[in-house]
Amino acid sequence: MSNQSLSFKKTFLTIWLPAVFAVIGIWYGSNLNAKTERYNKLRDIRLQYETEAYQNLCYAIVYRGQHQQRLSALYLRKVAIAVQFFGTPEQIDLLHIQTKRIEERKGNDFTDLLNSLRNDLRKQFELPVESSDIQQVMIDSAVFDKADSAYFANYKKTSLSDANRK
């Protein structure tokens, strides 16, 4: 073998081969990082919309119980959009079943969909999945009005009496 051939092999092994591996490593790492960032961003968007769908469905149920059908329908439309785009196949099926029941005037019970959304969110947030059905707390605004007026009446009395003492 000639001296020139050995010099080329030595140059190739010491300079070019590590450079090629470095370029491949940088490209692979960048590509992997981009895929991870994209996956995390999509997951964040899905969680945001699923959380909003869960909250909107709760609002729709509460407003339906207070006989505010227009507001309830508005929230149900928001739920339908979010679930159809970001929901699991099970959630989409539950939504279709309930919308058909509403169209046929057979009532509406969104408990199954609400439970599915809740359990999916709990899985995503790495919380234990709840097996019991959701309990909706329906509080009429009149209850809050009475509580507020009693609190503020008591607050005003104590504030005025404290000011008179000074």
Rank of each mutant, 00 (worst) to 15 (best):
I134A: 08
R77L: 11
E52N: 11
L95G: 08
I81V: 13
P128K: 13
A142T: 08
L42T: 01
L13A: 09
K157P: 09
Q124V: 06
D162W: 02
I97T: 12
T158Q: 09
E37D: 07
E37C: 00
D133N: 11
T158W: 05
F8M: 08
F12S: 11
T88P: 08
Y49I: 05
A34V: 00
S159A: 15
Q68K: 13
F21T: 06
N31G: 01
E90G: 11
T111Q: 14
Q124F: 04
E90T: 08
T111P: 07
F86Q: 14
E104R: 11
Y59K: 11
A163Q: 12
F144V: 04
E130K: 09
F152K: 03
R118V: 03
S5D: 15
D44C: 01
I134T: 02
S2V: 09
D93S: 15
Q135I: 05
R165V: 04
R64L: 07
A53P: 05
R46C: 13
W27F: 03
L71R: 14
F110N: 14
K156F: 15
L127H: 03
L121P: 11
D145A: 07
K100C: 05
S149A: 07
N115W: 09
R105V: 15
D120P: 06
K10L: 13
E52Y: 06
K78R: 15
K100I: 02
R46F: 04
I15F: 07
G65M: 13
Q98M: 13
R77N: 15
Q91P: 04
I139A: 06
L94K: 08
K78V: 11
K166V: 03
N164V: 08
K78H: 07
E126T: 02
N33E: 06
I81P: 11
A22I: 00
L13Q: 06
N56V: 05
L13H: 08
L6H: 07
